[in-house]
């Protein structure tokens, strides 16, 4: 078993870019402390490579050729693609793990159709997690993307299967691997409704996620998600994939809807690594 850590975290650009606008500094700092704890847990796990299952926002892919799933197998990645001052993360390069990424991609392909890319630009969807989890940007990273932006979107059942396939691919590797899924729950980002959060919906979803309630997790429809959780809610695919990869119960370490300036319910959680995957 080479998966040594699995968890989830939020990635909204306001988490770094609008930190100074958060009036609720107590909750903001508690959130940052939990993200630091997550970094420490990943380091303590001995993880050598970090796989980030993300929902990018047109940093690499557009509707001319939109993969449902893609794994980054390049030697280096670059980010942020956005204005660095806006995100408050300087532009940098991030080491990849090309040999391992290629092996993972080949094995995942046995179960799920994916694309791969040797050129990867990271937007806030990956840069914000890396800012907290490998602040020197020196840990090898394998980016994975699930299209959560340009409908039609991959079904949740396939996102679950992608997570399982990723896990099964990890099982055969010598390297110690950490996986994080990063996406929002309910949120209406990049609209005038930015900052709106459906806390009740979030908490119900997170309870199901922490309990590995596959049946309920996969029963959400895109129509219901759009209605109750906004278009940002489509990113639950990344969280579902992370849960599927882990296979074990989750531990919700942080959730708060009290930072609307970050435009998402801020979340940190870890999963037990089941030996049955």
């Amino acid at each position: 078993m080479s998966l040594v850590y699995a968890g989830i975290l939020s990635h909204a650009p306001g988490i770094t870019g609008r930190a100074n606008l958060a009036t609720n500094t107590l909750v903001r700092d508690a959130f940052y402390n939990c993200l630091e704890d997550q970094r420490n847990e990943i380091e303590a796990s001995g993880a050598e490579v970090l796989v980030v299952v993300a929902a990018e926002h047109f940093a690499n892919f557009f509707m001319d050729n939109m993969p449902a799933y893609c794994i980054g197998i390049g030697e280096k990645h670059y980010g942020p693609v956005e204005d660095a001052e806006w995100l408050k993360i300087p532009k940098t390069s991030i080491p990849g793990a090309p040999d391992l990424a290629l092996k993972l991609a080949k094995q995942v392909m046995q179960r799920v159709d994916i694309a791969y890319s040797e050129e990867w630009k990271c937007d806030h969807g990956i840069m914000v997690p890396l800012h907290f989890l490998t602040p020197n940007f020196d840990m090898p990273v394998i980016p994975c993307n699930i299209n959560c932006q340009g409908p039609p979107l991959t079904p949740l059942t396939r996102a679950w299967r992608f997570g399982e396939a990723l896990r099964q691919a990890c099982n055969d590797q010598a390297e110690k691997i950490a996986i994080v899924g990063t996406g929002g729950i309910s949120h209406w980002p990049a609209t005038p409704d930015s900052g709106k959060i459906n806390e009740a919906w979030d908490r119900e979803f997170l309870e199901q996620l922490m309990n590995q309630d596959k049946q309920k997790l996969l029963s959400y429809t895109d129509e219901d998600v759009y209605d109750q959780a906004g278009q940002g809610g489509f990113e639950i695919r990344t969280l579902i994939a992370a849960a599927a990869a882990a296979g074990g119960k989750g531990d919700l370490q942080f959730y708060s809807a009290e930072l609307p300036i970050f435009a998402v319910g801020c979340t940190v959680a870890r999963f037990e690594i089941s030996s049955e995957r």
């Binding site: 958060a22 009036t23 609720n24 500094t25 107590l26 909750v27 508690a30 959130f31 409908p151 209406w188 990049a190 609209t191 005038p192 409704d193 930015s194 900052g195 709106k196 959060i197 759009y226 906004g230 278009q231 942080f254 959730y255 708060s256 009290e258 930072l259 609307p260 300036i261 435009a263």
Partner: peptide
């Protein structure tokens, strides 16, 4: 899929609170 759905309401201001997160 990015329509405004809340009638132009402002959500991004938040009161200071000491509630358990």
């Amino acid at each position: 899929i990015y329509a405004m759905t809340a009638g132009g309401e402002q959500f991004a201001e938040t009161p200071v609170t000491s509630r358990d997160p």
